[in-house]
Structures are given as structure tokens and as C-alpha cells.
Design a protein around this nucleic acid. Structure first.
Length: 604
DNA sequence: AAAAAAT
């Protein structure tokens, strides 16, 4: 609790407490120890561990509390109120939107035509529409989606000033009729209550993605927004969503949401929901989060009662659609957060299925910190006349405020290197350790706890209530070490993560960018340590590029690794991996559940 | 090969 708390310095009292009970309720750490769906939240007050909240180490709340949503808005936004007339804005609506691409006509345009719905190639799999009824988009009620009125303070700027402003922030834009970036919060047409919240949070100016993304989104156009981790993407789409909603007719009984946000993990969806509540609540804009692993009852209740915003993971949403607990007929603003992830193999069929339920003249927005070339073609199948805004040039751009440290190690040495690192680094702030496998997570966590470290692990084999509990323990600092699979790689905004450790290097460099992006958010500094083994040599070359682009030191061992990869198999990848990472190393020492008391003494 | 996401 505070620096003079005897628990900080008195190992004896630490031991006393340790004997007082497990750190986790029985069954907790055990992936198989499911409490069953719908059970009560079981982990209300876990027994104390040898750890306090470490509040003395937490920096004061900065101007960027919101982190992921950092940035903000403020002033003159006039609240349009609900108009209810659902009129066209001549600038959008049919014209300029239904244009040249085949599929998506403007409001009331062609509808229903199977296969051509989005223009471009027809949907690929048969996974489309297997169980959901095809929607008839033949006679759509027009809706308004262009709300952007350029502020005089923006109009007055010279073209040269705009170019300079963009260049200074590395704002790159594509598309027809690109609006100018705004430079101050009040220049976006946000409602006053939003600006008040932003002001209270102490935001000073919009982040680059917000300053260019907001005018684009407010114009009602489709958008691809790419910006580094922790740069305020959530607010970049949530605030225009609020404006969008305010201009639509009220929901009536039986209506589904107006805004749909899709996210790749449950925890991220819940986090977005928190932001949505924070900003939408004051404007009486309701939202709910639809995700698996939690009881359906409350989710169904929310949907039936009517919510303007639904934030969802795909599986449960489809479930809800099939059961007709909601529908997407009123969705006119669709967001894919972590869009490249949502469009990759695992998710694409589900996304197709969901998107096929939404009117083709909707506004669609994609957001991510990474945007591999390959996804763009696929992505454009769901877009029309889209803008693209990206902050920075590189395909793979790490956040500049992250100090990146690479350690070339042998598989068997990883655990010892980890301990050494923890001893250097632990001061009570959070440390997030990424592993390749769920099993590896459990094993290392168990070993860490036996060695006295307050670690917990989160991964997809754990039931949701345990996942929730582990994350809350991590956030609160009661257990400041969390091991994780890639379930925690994207989007999660936990304050005061001092460092990220890639115990196992990720399987692609996009995930590397996202993982290390859990630290160094919203202007804070952070450090990312990554263990590389021979089996990761294929990443060395491009990793060096990422490091150089972020102004990082490239250690000789990494250069050597890059050379050896080039020598062994003409550059990247290739080669067979005799034994891969099987974990014959430290992992064989540690097995089974990580549900063990923290052992030994506090190691630092 | 692994992880995630419905039951």
C-alpha cells in the first residue's frame, strides 16, 4: 500500500501471509478447473499475496490516462440531438458513395444481389450465410452519415500550412477529397459533453491519427486508419460514432444497434466497452459488450432492451444473430478494430457472415497498428471509396517511445535469463511476459510462483472468470507479473506496464509490434525485451529494420543471427527446424498447473 | 505449430 508498509521489507510477515492461504481460490489456476458458465463471479476477494498494490511506484495519472484512447477533443461541438428525420445529406447518401464500384449502391441502390454485394470478387467460402437469413437490402431507408463541417480555423490555413502540419506528424493520406486535419479538439464537431470529458482527462491536443481520422470519419466515408500502438485509435472511431448515432432516428422496439464494433479478443472488447460507457453515457447513448464465455442472459437482456452501440467478438455475436436476439439491420457504422487480425484466416469467415447482415451503404472503418500488404485487397472488398490514413511510412512501425532490447539466447537458458531480467527490472510496476503456447504459459508461471514471483497467467484455455480475475490482479498490481499468449498481444491498455518480455518470440513481426505495444503507451516510456533463439533467425533481418526505424541499437548478436539465417537458407524463413522450440529445455523442469502458492521469499 | 473466437 505504501512505502513504509512492513510487508515491503519484512520477509517474515511475507511468509506469514503466505501460510494464510493460496493466492488464488481453489481451482483457479487450473485450466480445466472450470466453474461453469453462468456461475457467480467467484473470485471476489482472493487471499492476500505477499504483494501490495505498489501504489508508491505508480506515476501520477498523466494527461493520457485513457491510453489506448488517448487524445481527445473538446470545445465547440454542437450537439445535433437526434434528428429523427433521417434525411439525406446531399453530400453523401446516394451520390459520391454509390459511385463506380459495382456492389454498393447508394441508399436504396441495388440490393440483395448475392455475390456482388461488396463489388469485387464474390464471397469465397460457403461459410457465408449458411445459417443466417439473407438480408433484403432492396428498399433501404436512407440515413445521414456526413456530419463534417470544416471549422473556419481550419479553412483559413494555407495549403502549405496543412502540408507542414501533416509532414511534421508523419500523417499520410490516400483517397478522393481528403479533408484537412484538425488541429484542436473543438474543430471536430463533437458534442459538448464529449469535449468536457476530454478536458477533464487533461488531453492537450489530438494525436495525429485523431487529427486526420476524425474529419475523415465524420464525413461518413469508409476509412483505413493505421497508427502506432497506444496512439488513441479507440477514440478516433468512438467519438465519430457518437456523432453518427446522434443523427439517427431513435431506436424502436426490435431494433438492433446502430454502431457495431468488432474486436478479436474478449478482453479488448470489454475495454472498448469501458471507453464507450465513459463517453457515450453522458449523451444517453447505450452500449453493450457481446462476447463468449460469459452468461448470455444479461447480454440478451441488453440487446432486447435496445443499445445504440454493440461491441462484440465474432462468435457470440453470430450466436446472438442466429438466435435472433438481435439483428444488424440498423447498423450504419461498422468498425473493425485490429482489422488485419480480424481479416486473417481465423476470423475472415465470421467477419463475412456478419458483414453480410449489414446494409451495403454503411460506413466501414478499419483500425490497426499493423497493416500487411496482403490484407488490403481483402479489406477493400468490404470498403467503398475509402480513405486511408497512416501515421508513418513503414509497414511495421514500432512505437518510438519503446526501448527495444534483443537478447539472443539458447532455449534452455531462457528461464534463467528471465529471472535475471526480473531481478533487474522489478520495482512493483507491471511486467508482461509473452509465451508462444498456453502450456508454456502455465509452466513458466508455476515455476515463477514457486520461485517466489507474483505471476499469474492468462490464455484462452482458462475460463472467462479466471481471465477476468487475472487481468484485474495484473491491473491492480496485486500480481504485477502476467504471462500471456497472444490473447493479450493486441489492444489491451494497462497503465504502467514497465516492460514487456517476449520469452518466446512471436510467430510474426506484426505480433511483435503489437506485443511490445502494451508498454510505452500514450507518450509513456517502456522497455521491451525479446529472447531470440536460432529457430527465430528468420526474423532477424526484418527485426533489425524495425529496430533501426525506431532508432534502437542493434546488438552484434542479432546481426550475427541475421547473417547466419541468410547463410543457411538464402535469407528468410525456409530451412527445416529440426527440433523447433519443443521446450525440452527449462520447460521439462516445470509442468502441470500453475495453481501453486508463491513460494520462497520475495526475490527482490 | 499455435492462438483466438460459440456451445
Amino acid at each position: 500500500m505504501n512505502p513504509v508498509d512492513p510487508r515491503y521489507s519484512d520477509p517474515a510477515s511475507y511468509r506469514d501471509r503466505r501460510s494464510g492461504g493460496l493466492t488464488m481460490p481453489p481451482m483457479m489456476g487450473n485450466a480445466s478447473g472450470s466453474l461453469g458458465r453462468g456461475g457467480p463471479a467467484p473470485y471476489g476477494a482472493p487471499a492476500p499475496v505477499g504483494f501490495t498494490s505498489h501504489s508508491p511506484f505508480q506515476p501520477p495519472a498523466g494527461r493520457f490516462d485513457v491510453g489506448r484512447s488517448g487524445g481527445g477533443m473538446m470545445a465547440h461541438g454542437h450537439d445535433r440531438g437526434r434528428r429523427g428525420d433521417s434525411g439525406f445529406s446531399g453530400r453523401v447518401g446516394g451520390r459520391g458513395y454509390g459511385g463506380r464500384n459495382s456492389g454498393r449502391g447508394g441508399a436504396g441502390g441495388r440490393g440483395g444481389g448475392r455475390g456482388g454485394m461488396y463489388g469485387g470478387p464474390p464471397p469465397r467460402g460457403d461459410l457465408d450465410n449458411v445459417s443466417l437469413p439473407r438480408q433484403d437490402f432492396g428498399q433501404l431507408v436512407p440515413f445521414e452519415k456526413n456530419f463534417y463541417l470544416e471549422s473556419p480555423s481550419v479553412s483559413v490555413l494555407t495549403e502549405h500550412q496543412i502540408m507542414t502540419y501533416r509532414a511534421k506528424r508523419d500523417i499520410r493520406v490516400e483517397g478522393r477529397d481528403v479533408p484537412r486535419p484538425i488541429q484542436m479538439f473543438h474543430e471536430a464537431n463533437f458534442p459538448d459533453y464529449c469535449l468536457d470529458i476530454i478536458a477533464k482527462l487533461g488531453f492537450v491536443e489530438p494525436t495525429p491519427i485523431q487529427s486526420q481520422g476524425w474529419p475523415m470519419a465524420l464525413k461518413g466515408r469508409d476509412l483505413i486508419g493505421i497508427a502506432e500502438t497506444g496512439s488513441g485509435k479507440t477514440l478516433a472511431y468512438l467519438l465519430p460514432a457518437l456523432v453518427h448515432i446522434s443523427a439517427q432516428p431513435h431506436l424502436v422496439q426490435g431494433d438492433g444497434p446502430i454502431v457495431l464494433v468488432l474486436a478479436p479478443t474478449r478482453e479488448l472488447a470489454m475495454q472498448i466497452q469501458q471507453e464507450s460507457l465513459k463517453f457515450g453515457g453522458r449523451g444517453n447513448i447505450r452500449s453493450t459488450c457481446i462476447y463468449g464465455g460469459a452468461p448470455k442472459g444479461p447480454q440478451i437482456r441488453d440487446l432486447k432492451r435496445g443499445v445504440e452501440i454493440v461491441i462484440a467478438t465474432p462468435g457470440r455475436l453470430i450466436d446472438m444473430l442466429e438466435a435472433q436476439h438481435t439483428n444488424l439491420r440498423r447498423v450504419t457504422y461498422l468498425v473493425l478494430d485490429e482489422a488485419d487480425r480480424m481479416l486473417d484466416m481465423g476470423f475472415e469467415p465470421q467477419i463475412r457472415k456478419i458483414v453480410a447482415q449489414i446494409r451495403p451503404d454503411r460506413q466501414t472503418l478499419y483500425w490497426s497498428a499493423t497493416w500487411p500488404r496482403e490484407v488490403e485487397t481483402l479489406a477493400r472488398q468490404f470498403l467503398h471509396n475509402a480513405y486511408k490514413v497512416s501515421i508513418g511510412s513503414s509497414d511495421l512501425k514500432a512505437n518510438q517511445s519503446i526501448n527495444q532490447v534483443i537478447e539472443v539466447v539458447r532455449e534452455v537458458d531462457k528461464y534463467h535469463r528471465l529471472i535475471r531480467l526480473l531481478n533487474e527490472v522489478m520495482d512493483g510496476s507491471r511486467v508482461l511476459i509473452f509465451m508462444e503456447t498456453k502450456k508454456g504459459c502455465d509452466q513458466v508461471t508455476k515455476q515463477l510462483r514457486m520461485d517466489g514471483w507474483p505471476a499469474l497467467s492468462i490464455h484462452g484455455d482458462k475460463n472467462q472468470s479466471e481471465r477476468d480475475w487475472v487481468l484485474s490482479e495484473f491491473k491492480s498490481g496485486r500480481n504485477p507479473i502476467m504471462t500471456a499468449t497472444d490473447v493479450a498481444a493486441r489492444g489491451l491498455d494497462v497503465k504502467d506496464i514497465k516492460c514487456v518480455i517476449n520469452y518466446d518470440f512471436p510467430s510474426n513481426l506484426e505480433d511483435y509490434i503489437h506485443r511490445i505495444g502494451r508498454t510505452g503507451r500514450a507518450g509513456a516510456k517502456g522497455t521491451a525485451y525479446s529472447f531470440l533463439t536460432d529457430s527465430n533467425a528468420k526474423f532477424a533481418r526484418e527485426l533489425i529494420k524495425i529496430l533501426q526505424e525506431a532508432g534502437q541499437v542493434v546488438c552484434p548478436a542479432l546481426s550475427d543471427l541475421a547473417r547466419s539465417a541468410a547463410a543457411s537458407h538464402g535469407g528468410s524463413g525456409g530451412g527445416f527446424r529440426s527440433r523447433g522450440r519443443g521446450g525440452y529445455g527449462s520447460r521439462s523442469l516445470i509442468s502441470g498447473s500453475n495453481n501453486v502458492p508463491i513460494g520462497g521469499r520475495r526475490p527482490w
